[in-house]
Simulated assay, not measured.
Amino acid sequence: MTTYGFLGIGIMGKAMVENLLKARFSVNVWNRTGSRCAPLVGQGAVQYQTPAEVVATSDITFAMVSDPAAAEALCFDAGGVLAGITAGKSYVDVSTVDPETSAKIAKAIQDKGGRFLEAPVSGSKKPAEDGTLVFLCSGDKALFDDAQPALDVMGKKSFYFDQIGQGAQMKLVINMIMGSMMTAFGEGLALGDKVGLEMGDIIDVLAQGAINNPMFQLKGPQMANGNFSPAFPLKHMQKDMRLALLLGDEHDQPLFTASAANSIYIKARQEGYAEDDFSASFKVIKKD
């Protein structure tokens, strides 16, 4: 029976581990703030004090952390992932990082005889809870196949791309589109409100047309009611927009719309909305 590890018990990680436990998988867990593991231990997970211990006692270890700096620290710091990697151990990073960070971690894992798969996810809190995430994977194909039972529990679809970095690139492209859509949606709701249209009516009309999508129907009513509880924190969306813009610069691809949207997220962070949901970009768009 495969034993899974999971590093990073945040909004996403907690929900993902809960689904693994519900499927009766054996799961070892670690989080920098150890108390966050307590509810999972109560459901059957085994908690360890360092990432290295989780990796050493697990066949396949997943990690979900906030950004490239956190992913590198998790891997390379004392007591980190690399300290637990030996031949036969497998590491799946589901964090959203830049391709260069992913390649750096992959090489370090492989140099110690381990297997590496990058598998950033498309989806936020609700899909994580429902087990309907989409995994964007690249790296060791055999590990992709071996991890499939866990991926199937946590998600509804897993894509595989040949080259390390392509999973990260796909995630940045997807989140760049989503982040830009959210700011355009916010501007539409704000303009409609200014001219006297009910936001609920705008959302209902959108639902009947070609541009309708689940994000508008989920986030729209929450935005109209002033509910910005974080499913995907705004600070993480701004990080992903920044990484996408850097990717565009590297490949000489202008990203005019994404650049404008990123400016809105930066302003929202400056105004204190970093920990709110990324839909809180609406707060800096809508001015009374």
Rank of each mutant, 00 (worst) to 15 (best):
G10P: 13
Q208M: 11
T96P: 04
Y265G: 05
T57F: 09
A261E: 03
P51I: 02
G123N: 00
D276P: 05
D240A: 05
Y4L: 05
A260R: 09
N28W: 14
C75S: 15
Q270W: 14
V81H: 05
I105T: 04
S281C: 12
I211Y: 11
G114V: 13
A142N: 08
I202D: 03
L255A: 04
G123F: 04
E118L: 11
K104Y: 10
Q110D: 05
F76D: 14
A210T: 07
N227A: 02
Q148K: 01
L189M: 06
M154L: 08
K112V: 12
A147K: 11
Q238R: 02
S281Y: 03
M178E: 03
G88S: 09
D240C: 14
K126V: 11
L136M: 14
K283S: 00
D146G: 01
A258W: 05
D146Q: 12
N28Q: 11
T257R: 04
N227Q: 09
A280S: 15
K141V: 02
T257Y: 01
D67K: 05
A106L: 04
R36S: 10
A150C: 08
D201F: 10
R24N: 14
D276A: 05
K287Y: 10
G272N: 11
F76V: 08
F144C: 01
H236M: 15
F282G: 01
F185K: 00
V195A: 04
P68K: 07
G34F: 05
D146E: 15
A106F: 06
M181C: 02
N262F: 13
K171S: 08
F232T: 10
S58W: 09
K141G: 01
R269V: 13
I177T: 08
A261F: 06
I174V: 12
N213M: 10
P99K: 05
I203V: 02
K267T: 10
G220H: 02
G167H: 00
L136G: 00
I9S: 14
M237Y: 04
L151F: 15
K104F: 14
M199H: 00
F161T: 01
A128E: 10
L143W: 00
N262W: 12
D276T: 06
Y273D: 08
I203C: 00
G80C: 15
F161N: 00
A147G: 10
Q253D: 07
D204K: 00
S26Y: 14
G192R: 02
V134G: 01
N19V: 07
A38N: 09
A70S: 15
Q163N: 10
L234V: 13
I174W: 03
G80L: 14
D249V: 04
G84K: 06
A15T: 02
L40P: 15
R115K: 11
Q47E: 15
Q47L: 12
A15S: 11
D277H: 08
F216I: 03
M241S: 04
S102C: 01
Q208E: 11
Q169L: 07
A207W: 07
A83S: 13
G34Q: 11
F161I: 01
E18T: 07
D145Y: 09
I174S: 03
L21V: 03
D111L: 14
V27F: 15
G167F: 00
I174G: 01
K141S: 03
F144M: 02
F216N: 00
V54E: 12
T96W: 13
M181D: 03
F282M: 08
K219H: 12
G84M: 09
P68I: 12
V54N: 06
